Amino acid sequence: MTESTGFGCAACCAEDAVVARAHHQSHTGVRVEQMIQDDSHFIVSVQRCGLCSQAFVNVFTEYVDWVASRDAQYRTVLPITDAEAEELKTGRLSPHRAGALGHGRRHLQSDWPSEAGEPSVYWDSGVFEVREGR
């Protein structure tokens, strides 16, 4: 566990958000344990770090830009307890309520609005809103 968060390791919960994101995007870093929802513009999965087995809920939302074809993309990666992972996997916790897990907990955020040239990647805390893309 990292000292600052009580979750994860120095790779999956690195202080530098860009370093943490790179670990989450690598094929050996974090693996999908179970897809919860897999739609074209809204994807929710429970994932695990390959180094420390920390569980995460990963929420991806995309908003189609019908005019300029520059779809806005948002991703939130929140460390969760094994009990919370089980609730998501068994359907006792809806993906739409996943944001309630984030209250007071640090989560990795990647925001790529339509007008941006690249995503902004940062750690945030508090409740995050879970909305389906369109």
Rank of each mutant, 00 (worst) to 15 (best):
T2F: 04
E3W: 04
E3Q: 12
S4A: 13
S4M: 02
G6C: 08
G6E: 01
F7K: 02
A10Q: 12
C13S: 14
C13A: 15
A14M: 08
E15Y: 05
D16N: 15
V18L: 10
V19G: 00
V19T: 14
A20I: 00
R21S: 13
Q25H: 06
S26F: 08
S26P: 01
H27Q: 12
T28A: 15
T28C: 05
T28D: 15
G29K: 04
G29F: 05
G29R: 03
G29Q: 03
V30P: 06
V32A: 10
E33W: 08
M35G: 12
I36C: 09
I36W: 03
Q37P: 00
S40A: 12
H41P: 00
H41C: 13
F42K: 03
F42H: 08
I43G: 01
V44A: 06
V46A: 11
V46D: 07
V46M: 09
Q47H: 11
Q47R: 15
C49Y: 03
G50C: 06
C52W: 06
C52E: 10
C52M: 02
C52V: 05
S53Q: 11
S53W: 00
S53F: 07
S53N: 12
S53C: 06
Q54F: 03
Q54I: 01
A55N: 15
A55P: 10
V57K: 02
N58H: 12
V59K: 03
V59C: 01
F60T: 06
F60R: 10
E62A: 15
V64W: 04
D65W: 02
D65S: 11
D65K: 07
A68N: 12
A68E: 14
A68G: 00
A68W: 07
S69D: 14
Y74A: 03
R75H: 12
T76R: 13
P79A: 04
I80R: 10
I80E: 07
D82F: 05
D82T: 14
A83H: 06
A83L: 08
A85T: 05
E87N: 09
L88N: 07
K89I: 08
R92V: 04
R97M: 10
R97G: 08
A100C: 03
G102L: 05
G102E: 01
H103G: 09
H103A: 15
G104H: 03
G104D: 05
R105L: 13
R106C: 01
R106D: 00
H107D: 02
L108S: 04
L108Y: 09
S110K: 07
P113L: 11
S114K: 11
E115M: 13
G117K: 08
E118M: 11
P119M: 02
P119F: 04
S120M: 02
S120E: 14
S120N: 08
V121S: 05
Y122P: 00
Y122H: 09
W123E: 01
W123D: 04
S125F: 11
G126P: 07
F128V: 04
F128L: 07
E129R: 02
E129T: 13
E132V: 05
E132Y: 01
E132P: 06
